[in-house]
Design a protein around this nucleic acid. Structure first.
Length: 595
RNA sequence: GCUGGUAUAGCUCAGCCGGUAGAGCAGCGCAUUCGUAAUGCGCAGGUCGUCAGUUCGAGUCUGACUACCAGCUCCA
């Protein structure tokens, strides 16, 4: 039998190994805290977890005690034995052992399901398996319990919150250490850390949760990104709009937001008093941009109408949801709506996708993204507008387009917008948590609600289709992911400060200023560091700030009218004529090169 | 919203059993004029997140609130 069978290269073996470790954890918990009830404990991407209903939450000290107990269980080399029971026997066993969560799981199994258990010593768990044959197979020095947090039973926030213990395990201590080091390295790139340290954003208690202040560096990057998007959209036939940040409640009643999204909106006024005016800050741009289309009678010749807006939105997220720049209550998005004839849908959808891909490629993020076809949940229709027929039609159409375009996607049930299915472009942050960066949505419902129509070639009035889309997503989130991707060393064209000019002595400070002036005249963001500090000190500071280019200027350079170039990644590059340096960085900037 | 954790100078962190606040870095001043990741000396900087409570006395103990972090749930 090939050795690879019993390594982590074998996905099945890895999962069985980690799943068995989770059982060892559960056994340790039962030994130390016998009143604890068991929920579930699967293997996951980076390890495993087990959910418990424990009388007391597990703190860090308890995790250490549990690790010690787990080592004992490993040493005992307990064999894992599988056995099957009839439904009645299974229920009786779990009742006897006092495991209400397991009883609920058994109850939900299909009538004809095989009900299997695994036993290791005094510990028995309802489990489909598979497992290793002995607890002794798990390496006692290559596992770690990483955290304990809350998690809802069955992922349902209306159900009880349990204690979830996360852990990881490998087949050697070296692999465990390497994994833990990777996690630490990822944390060092966390935008929430470096974004604050490097002056991209901050938060302030008195302003409130989810309302970050963009500092000069962050504001600059977002300005550069939004200019880039607006120019690119203009090139691709978009018209620019600028619509209000708020509207009367009546607008949201038409769009359906009042019924489906009220909890997510900031409302100004008493929403229940119909005798007074009530406003709400906009959580989306759609109903506002539709007014542009509605402004006059539209011909089939006017379509497609592509509307773009750098649009600030407000969403009243629950208090625990905010995270750095990734999840906030006010954000600005590259929003747009395309109003179309049905025959234009596929072509325009493709155009939106090409634009999104162009943006992602330019930023260097494309390789980190995955696609999700977000559909409604036919069992949860209250969340959605429209009929099953309308949803099926929209989703079938979208599925066809995605297949034509050869998009490799996974399906997300109950992930749709309330008005239609979405293609979400997903990306993971440094913690491995996935968020939507870009979304393209087909909407066959709102045009009807707003009475949008165009006059077709035969003179009859027709209902247009609408695509909702972003091209680069929302700027705050995109900035966060860029900071993480590049650990703060953004591509030259996006760097808030592109060149730092460093005179070695006061004698060359004026020459340095002259160079800075020339660079600025060519549109570069450059600063002179005129302080009376040693060159090593100035370089260190510029390096820590990830400045792409440093120009080190001493008497030699001033005399020969040259600049000595240092790059943040490559160190000293030697002396050259300013014109040559300028030509090189102009090319790098204008091509939006990723270095 | 839920679970757990955290909150001391701009930043990173000390501060014991409750007795009135400490360091390094950053900042400012002076000296230094230096060739590729930290020059030296000095100065200044804090209603210990906020509000209550216990106590002769609270950074330290208790409660509520606010914000931040991780996870859950929810979402761009």
């Amino acid at each position: 039998m090939p050795d690879a069978l019993y390594t982590f290269e074998n996905e099945n073996y890895k999962n069985a190994y980690r799943h068995t470790t989770s059982h060892i954890l559960a056994q340790a918990v039962k030994r130390l805290f016998p009143d604890t009830k068991l929920a579930i404990g699967p293997a996951i991407t980076d390890g495993f977890y087990y959910d418990f209903d424990a009388p007391e939450p597990f703190g860090p000290e308890v995790l250490e005690q549990l690790e010690a107990e787990m080592k004992k269980i490993i040493k005992e080399k307990l064999p894992l034995e599988r056995f099957e029971l009839s439904r009645d026997q299974a229920v009786a066993l779990m009742e006897e052992r006092g495991e209400p969560y397991k009883l609920e799981l058994i109850h939900d199994l299909p009538e004809d399901a095989v009900i299997s258990f695994y036993r290791q010593g005094d510990f028995v768990d309802l489990c489909a398996g598979p497992h290793l044959d002995s607890t002794g197979r798990v390496k006692a020095n290559a596992f770690k319990l990483t955290s304990c947090t809350g998690a809802y039973w069955r992922g349902d926030s209306s159900k009880k919150m349990l204690q979830r213990v996360y852990g990881t395990c490998f087949m050697s201590k070296d692999e465990l250490d390497a994994y833990l080091e990777r996690v630490e390295e990822a944390k060092r790139r966390d935008h929430n850390k470096i974004g604050r340290e490097l002056g991209y954003f901050t938060t302030v208690d008195v302003i409130g949760q989810g309302l970050p202040i963009l500092m000069p560096n962050g504001a600059r990057v977002i300005q550069l990104l939004s200019r880039f998007v607006e120019d690119e959209e203009q090139r691709r036939g978009y018209q620019l709009t600028k619509t209000p940040f708020m509207a009367k409640r009546e607008l949201y009643k038409i769009s359906g937001h009042w019924d489906h999204y009220r909890e997510g909106m900031f409302i100004l006024g008493d929403p229940d008093d119909e005798t007074t005016e009530c406003f709400a800050l906009r959580p989306m741009t759609c109903p506002f941009q539709y007014q542009v289309f509605l402004n006059s009678m539209r011909s089939y010749r006017d379509l497609p109408m592509r509307l773009g807006e750098t649009s600030t939105l407000f969403r009243n997220e629950d208090s625990g949801e905010m995270h750095g720049l990734i999840r906030v209550r006010q954000f600005t998005i590259s929003e747009g709506h395309l109003i179309l004839r049905p025959d234009q849908l596929e072509e325009e959808f493709k155009g939106c996708l090409e634009l999104a891909k162009f943006m992602l490629e330019t930023l260097g993020l494309e390789g980190d993204c995955s696609y999700r076809f977000s559909q409604w949940d036919p069992n949860n229709t209250a969340k959605y507008e429209g009929t099953a027929e309308q949803w099926n039609a929209a989703q079938t159409l979208m599925g066809k387009i995605l297949d034509h375009l050869g998009i490799d996607y996974k399906i997300g049930i109950d992930e749709a917008a309330f008005y239609g299915p979405k293609l979400d472009i997903q990306i993971k942050n440094v913690h491995g948590k996935e968020d939507t960066l870009i979304t393209i949505q087909i909407d066959m419902l709102l045009a009807e609600k707003f009475g949008m129509e165009y006059v077709d070639a035969d003179g009859s009035k027709k209902r247009p289709y609408i695509i909702h889309r972003t091209s680069i997503g929302c700027y705050e989130r995109t900035l966060a992911l860029l900071l993480e991707k590049y650990a703060g060393a953004l591509p030259l064209w996006l760097m808030p400060e592109q060149v730092r000019v460093l005179p070695i002595t006061d004698r060359t400070a004026d020459y340095a200023d002259q160079i800075t002036k020339t660079l600025r005249a060519s549109g570069f963001r450059a600063e002179t560091d005129r302080r009376s500090e040693k060159i090593g000190y100035k370089i260190r500071e510029a390096q820590l700030q990830k400045i792409p280019y440093m120009l080190v200027l001493g008497d030699k350079e001033a005399e020969t009218n040259t600049v000595t170039v240092r790059t943040r990644a490559g160190g000293d590059q030697g002396a050259m004529a300013l014109a040559d340096f300028l030509a090189a960085i102009t090319e790098e900037r204008d091509s939006r090169a990723i270095k």
